[in-house]
């Protein structure tokens, strides 16, 4: 019985000092474990060299009306298209209600440069490169781009019109450094 009295010596309000020590020790170990897991998870994120925002300069002087080129920025394909007047008119004719991701052509181009449609060539569905930038490729039901992987159709303003992709082709950040040179990034 003496030993029991000794064991109960530290009890106040039914809480033993040992319970407190147990909980404190395990909690502290838990905090330590989380602190160790953080860098182990974070190492998977894009590294500094990948993140270093490279900017790409593109000479657009050689792209005739109705033509497009494919270039790359941050290792992602970029489409630069010189829209024809008919394509601009067609893009402006589409009612906003018909669009899954409602945006006007003006919102997707720079003021006064409405014929220059610059987008990432990355389908917003699962990331394939859509067709339509090169001569003779399938441009889909809406005359813009067509992604053959899962059948997404983009219109002349590269807006999603049909198929599984949720949003329009992404317009990357860019500036016209002169009339013939564009800097992306």
């Amino acid at each position: 019985m003496a030993s029991e009295t000794e064991l109960n010596a530290g009890i106040e309000d039914g809480v033993r000092r040992r319970d407190f020590i147990n909980i404190a020790a395990v909690s502290f170990a838990g905090v330590g474990a989380v602190a160790v897991v953080l860098p182990l998870v974070n190492q998977m994120n894009p590294s500094a060299d990948v993140l270093a925002l490279s900017s790409t300069e593109i000479d657009i002087s050689a792209i005739g009306t109705g033509q497009a080129i494919k270039t790359s920025w941050r290792k992602q394909p970029v489409f630069v298209r010189n829209l024809t007047a008919a394509e601009i008119a067609e893009a402006n004719r589409v009612p906003m209600n018909d669009l899954r991701d409602a945006q006007t052509l003006a919102e997707r181009t720079k003021p006064g440069k409405e014929n220059w449609l610059i987008t990432l060539g990355v389908c917003t569905h699962l990331g394939c490169v859509p067709l339509g930038a090169a001569e003779g490729e399938n441009r889909g039901d809406f005359g813009g781009y067509f992604c053959p992987c899962h059948g997404s159709h983009y219109d002349t303003a590269a807006r999603i019109r049909k198929g599984p992709a949720p949003t329009n082709l992404v317009v990357p950040p860019y500036e016209f450094t002169s009339d013939t040179v564009v800097t992306i990034g």
């Binding site: 998977m44 994120n45 894009p46 590294s47 990948v50 290792k75």
Partner: peptide, 12 residues
């Protein structure tokens, strides 16, 4: 991006 370690599949 966390899974890929970049914006497209690459060395990482």
């Amino acid at each position: 991006q966390w899974l890929l370690g970049g914006f497209v599949p690459d060395n990482a």
